[in-house]
Simulated assay, not measured.
Amino acid sequence: MNIDIVTLFPEMVTAGFQTSIIGRAIDSGVVAIDTVNFRDFSTNKHHHVDDYPYGGGAGMLLKVEPLVAAITAAKEKQSGKRSRVILMDPSGKKFDQQTAVEFSQEEHLIFICGHYEGYDERIKDYTDDSYSIGDFVLTGGELPAMVMIDASVRLLPGVLGNEDSAIEESHSSGLLEYPQYTRPPEFDGKKVPEVLLSGHHGRIKEWRHYQALRKTYRERPDLLETYDMSPEETKWLVEIKNEQTKKEKKD
């Protein structure tokens, strides 16, 4: 996989990907991540890439010409590959795990990182998608792009040491990940659930599934609105709700 990040601050993203799992993925050749500074494509003698908005208003807008030129240059570097251009935009679709899976299957991704007050709207004619990581405002698109890249690259074969890790993580199944424990078996009076010490793989698997549903209901019930629940999970959810009701009455 090849990834290009169109940004005014290439050193910011370059430094962020030099270590840990993504750094190792780059070193092993699983992914190539490069930057394109769109200031290099400014036609202004002062290398400005922004200007005042027509009609007035606060702030400055990124100009369309240098961004389109940078996108074109990034595509030309990967001639013959299908490129998907992603615009970092607070008004874009919310990035999620399913989107990360989609991104991980692309040949070439180009992330456009904005700054200032926003973009000239015409840039959207040269992009495929607009994405956001949440309903808040950041100073630029670099951090959201890095989040999306991290979530996507770690799904590539050979990136994680244990291929099952990505399958069992929160959001991969539509539920949050079940609670996990390690040694010691007891700390400060708090014990590891007996089922995890039983060695019975079937019971452990069922317990984990139940706990994942329980945790999702308690911490992110909104995820269950679109989750396709099995009859067994429906029965479990009734138990979980009754358990919660009893706890609330007791408190």
Rank of each mutant, 00 (worst) to 15 (best):
T99V: 04
R154V: 02
K247L: 06
L156C: 03
G29D: 11
P90C: 00
A145T: 14
G118A: 00
A100M: 04
M229S: 06
A69R: 15
L160F: 08
M229W: 07
D89T: 02
C113H: 13
Y119P: 01
V101W: 13
Y126C: 02
Q97E: 13
S28R: 14
C113F: 07
C113V: 06
V31E: 12
E142P: 09
D164E: 11
G80Q: 06
P144S: 01
P193T: 09
E243V: 02
I167K: 13
S152G: 08
L224T: 03
D89E: 09
Y181P: 08
D50H: 00
A32G: 12
R183H: 06
Y210R: 14
D27F: 12
T127C: 05
L197V: 04
Q97N: 09
E248Y: 13
E219G: 11
K249C: 04
Y217K: 05
K250Y: 05
K250N: 06
D129H: 13
L176Q: 03
L143T: 05
Y52A: 03
K247T: 05
T226M: 11
E117H: 01
N2A: 05
I71S: 06
G189I: 01
D96A: 04
G140T: 01
D96Y: 14
G140S: 04
H47N: 14
D120S: 00
I110Q: 09
E65A: 01
A15W: 15
Y178W: 07
Q211S: 06
H48G: 10
M88T: 09
K124E: 09
D125G: 10
E239N: 10
R220W: 11
H48Q: 15
E232I: 04
L67H: 06
P66I: 01
P10A: 02
I71C: 05
D228A: 01
L109V: 01
E186V: 02
M146K: 08
P144W: 04
S198L: 11
G134A: 00
K81V: 05
L175A: 01
E177K: 09
E163Q: 15
Y178T: 02
Q18F: 08
Q78E: 15
K249E: 12
I71K: 09
L175S: 08
I26F: 10
D40I: 07
V36Y: 11
M148T: 01
R203A: 10
D164V: 00
E186N: 10
G59M: 04
E194L: 10
T7C: 07
L156W: 07
A58V: 02
Q244W: 11
I86M: 07
I33Y: 13
R39H: 15
L8D: 05
G158Y: 15
I21S: 08
P185I: 05
E142N: 04
L237N: 05
L160Q: 10
G134P: 09
H108A: 02
L175Q: 12
H171P: 07
N242M: 06
L138D: 03
H200T: 14
T7V: 03
M12C: 02
G199N: 15
D27G: 06
S83T: 07
E243F: 04
K247C: 05
H209L: 08
F187H: 08
S83V: 02
V6M: 11
H209K: 14
E232K: 13
P90M: 00
T43L: 09
G158Q: 14
E76K: 11
Q105E: 10
P221L: 02
M1K: 07
L197F: 14
D50S: 01
L143M: 10
L160P: 08
